[in-house]
């Protein structure tokens, strides 16, 4: 039996936009097992990013609980939550993923440094990761010198740096051309398969949805459907 890696119970989130309460999530239940490759789909404003933020501990639910790898992150104090994120969760955002003043090597190494990995091991791991995402030759390039697709690949490499159990990606291909998007997806799928990392990503992109083995659709902050499919 596979281990449950993400377990969300009755998660609701209400934002107050100009004094008007907006229900971003309503009683969402989610159960994801280790090694899954899950796409979170739905129209804009359906609550995809909000749900990812709740699972990643970037935001607190208004009600409900979230367990990640058996830890109730909704109860963790801020400092412990930051450490938990650092050790267990990798993030890939739509944009503004990398620290603009650092090179690819330094961006990836930064997370390792936060984990106090010794310099020698750090350098070895950074090179491995860049090779894995096919950007070893861009080791000393700053984000401004990389294409959008290359930046996202560096972001994936950075998300992997701390050897997390989960990678949460919020519309990772939204700003990419189809070739870069396909390339990124292939890398993510490969990592999922070879390193058993759980991927949960929100997307609008049909090509990305087709690569997923499980597709969860959110509509108006509620789970509308949860389908297991065979990726193309």
């Amino acid at each position: 039996m596979k281990k449950t890696i993400i377990d969300a119970h009755n998660v609701s989130k209400t934002y107050n936009e100009k004094m008007i309460p907006v229900k971003a999530l309503q009683d969402v239940h989610l159960h994801i097992e280790e090694g899954e490759f899950v796409a979170l789909v739905g129209p804009s404003g359906s609550g995809k990013s909000t749900l990812l933020n709740m699972i990643g501990g970037l935001d607190e639910p208004s009600s409900g609980t979230v367990f990640v790898d058996g830890v109730e992150i909704t109860k963790l104090p801020e400092n412990k939550l930051i450490d938990f994120r650092l050790e267990n969760i990798g993030f890939v955002f739509q944009s503004f993923n990398l620290i603009p003043v650092l090179t690819s090597k330094e961006n990836i190494g930064f997370v390792l440094q936060l984990q106090k990995v010794p310099k020698k091991d750090r350098e070895k791991r950074v090179l491995e990761l860049l090779q894995e995402v096919g950007l070893a030759e861009k080791i000393n390039s700053r984000p401004g010198e990389l294409s959008g697709g290359q930046q996202q690949r560096v972001a994936v490499a950075r998300a992997l740096a701390s050897k997390p159990k989960i990678i949460l990606a919020d519309e990772p291909t939204a700003n990419l051309d189809s070739k870069s998007a396909a390339n990124l997806l292939d890398i993510m799928a490969k990592l999922n398969k070879e390193e058993k990392i759980t991927f949960l990503f929100s997307t609008h992109d049909q090509r990305v949805i087709e690569k997923a083995r499980r597709v969860i659709t959110l509509v108006d902050g509620k789970v509308d459907s949860d389908i297991v499919q065979t990726p193309t």
Binding site: G56, L58, R85, L86, F93, N97, I99, F110, L114
Partner: peptide
Amino acid sequence: RELGMLMAIGLN
């Protein structure tokens, strides 16, 4: 956004 990203990746 950048500061948000830094916090997300583990900068306290």
